[in-house]
Design a protein around this nucleic acid. Structure first.
Lengths: 199, 199
DNA sequence: GTCTATAATCAGATAGAC
DNA sequence: GTCTATCTGATTATAGAC
């Protein structure tokens, strides 16, 4: 009589990670619309019902996938900011094709999946807050007067440029890319190689 | 015997535009995954088969929708660049929420729809080329030495910032937005109100 | 933990009547 | 130009056996 007490897999089962890996590959290669229970399972070499066994709904799968990546991202960025060439490290981190592509894909997803929206927004704000907190000290170390440009604006600009570069690359666009990369990297190099000279 | 010579509606039929309008509303409000033949027709108050009558496939509908918007966009940007306050006009044009949202939605779509990809990339390159052509003259008029920053880089930066601002707004993000908007608008105002002074 | 089987939707697309 | 009817295939999700 009592309605079936639906069972679900434990969070640390091996095949759970296998499914998440498969989902991430699909998301990166074909976009979020390709991430269906059946295709994820096929990619993992498992039956599609297992997706529902480990993740109640597809939203749950996306959330689990996002959280796993988000934690890695926060750690990587913290390491970059703490390194001895933080600007270069931050730029390398931000323009990582896989990372930026996944972020953009999750942002698209968040646009029409309510459950994802809050999570993505929260993570992005945390990333940005960590940068905004670290940057003033970094700029000061390089002798850059804070009046030049508010650190939070610099943080925002960097993120924008990195994301759009990666996004457009994927579409086969290139207008202005080389010039912008060169401009940013030249800027970083001048700052980090000659901390005293910058005009 | 001869296989049915499938018929299709003429490009200037009234209901064709009605369907495109409906598709655009859906795309803006709920994202591209909501733009199905059935939902578009429902939004337009028509039967879903009419979508296939006017647009052979859904890709055709997306392409028609994109081209209609793209032509408007190119005209609007040309008008902005030719106005007496081109920087301000360009910024206003670029940060138009509806326009930027649609552009981002089409970029997401282009990411996993081959037929859309080429069209979106081509349009975006044309927009950027038009800006890159006009900007040197504008900067010269304001007395800005071209060594400060390559015009094409400025063009790219502006587009990035505008797009990401709009995208993040839709997700409910706000960190750094006010500061960045203020920074850009202050910059534009200083340039356009006092063409001679800029330091 | 994994399987078979199945329910219930929803999608794109076409044929042919009116 | 618009309709009804239909085909085909994909999707999420659940129940219950093993």
């Amino acid at each position: 009589m009592t309605s079936s007490p639906r069972r679900y897999g434990s969070p640390d089962a091996k095949n759970r990670s296998v499914l998440l890996d498969a989902a991430e590959e699909l998301l990166l290669a074909e976009g979020y619309s390709a991430v269906t229970a059946r295709r994820v399972a096929a990619q993992a070499g498992l039956k599609h019902q297992l997706v529902h066994y480990y993740f109640h709904t597809m939203d749950d799968l996306f959330l689990a996938l996002f959280r796993r990546r988000a934690e890695q991202g926060l750690e990587q960025q913290a390491a970059a900011l703490a390194s001895d060439r933080p600007l270069r490290a931050l730029w390398t981190f931000s323009t990582d094709p896989a990372g930026a592509s996944l972020t953009m894909e999750f942002m698209s997803l968040a646009n029409h999946r309510e459950a994802i929206r809050a999570e993505v927004a929260h993570y992005a704000e945390r990333l940005r807050a960590a940068q905004a907190e670290a940057l003033p000290g970094i700029l000061q170390r390089y002798g850059i007067p804070p009046e030049t440009c508010p650190p939070i604006v610099l943080v925002f600009l960097t993120t924008c440029v990195a994301r759009v570069l990666v996004l457009e690359d994927r579409l086969g666009m290139s207008a202005g890319h080389d010039e912008t990369r060169a401009y940013v990297e030249d800027l970083i190099q001048r700052l980090e190689e000659h901390p005293s000279r910058h005009d």
